[in-house]
Amino acid sequence: MASANRLLVRNIRKSFGTHEVLKGISLEARDGDVISILGASGSGKSTFLRCINLLEIANEGEIWVDGEQIQMTRHHGQNRPQSQKQVDRIRSELGMVFQSFNLWSHMTILENIIEGPVHVLKRPKADCIAEAEALLEKVGIADKRHAYPAHLSGGQQQRAAIARSLAMKPKVMLFDEPTSALDPELVGEVLRVMRALAEEGMTMLVVTHEMSFARDVSNRVIFMRQGVIDSDGAPQDMFGSNASPAFRQFIGNFGA
């Protein structure tokens, strides 16, 4: 049943022009699942994540968030959301963390974090500030609350971006290669925050190249190849002896 899932995606297809990037992807995430999505660049994993919160509109397929289906309609042969209102509301329930952080550069870190709760969820500002301070504490950048994003390191910016998403109290967090733009020495601080989130029971979908995160933190690993799910399973199976040949070759390239 759909309502048992935090997220249910059925048979998503997406083409850019004549190039089919996603050839029918399905996935369900139960409460507390931490799913790592691995794959070579061009395998469609980022596009898949962006289809879930409709930053890209899939040509076909169904998306259910917490038991609610996103209503789609056909328009000139193109799939299109029926109600922008519903899309905006669903998006506010899905946290998204980008590879390039994408903090709003004209706002301080604190302003970035309270922006969504105050203006999208229309909650009292004082409450939002108190919660934002707690989140900043949690991701370890409380001293940066009045700094602007440009004055922070990449790792600090990404932790602020995670806090910004968490401030919306999302039902699912989507991470799109959250550590790929970081200098190697800054990767650890972001992964630590993500690991803590996973341990608190947050439902997470993580597109990543961090094999250690996939193996040690997530409870499920999905390997995508050429627009389809090549293999899917618990990390101990995926990284164990019965891994698919393609996946084995993929992780071989990482020296994992």
Binding site: F98, S100, N102, E115, V120, S165
Partner: peptide, 16 residues
């Protein structure tokens, strides 16, 4: 304006 910042605004559920 950075396209990414506009996407972040969409992703957080801001209407147009």
């Amino acid at each position: 304006i950075s396209r990414g910042e506009l996407e972040a605004a969409q992703a957080i559920g801001m209407a147009k």
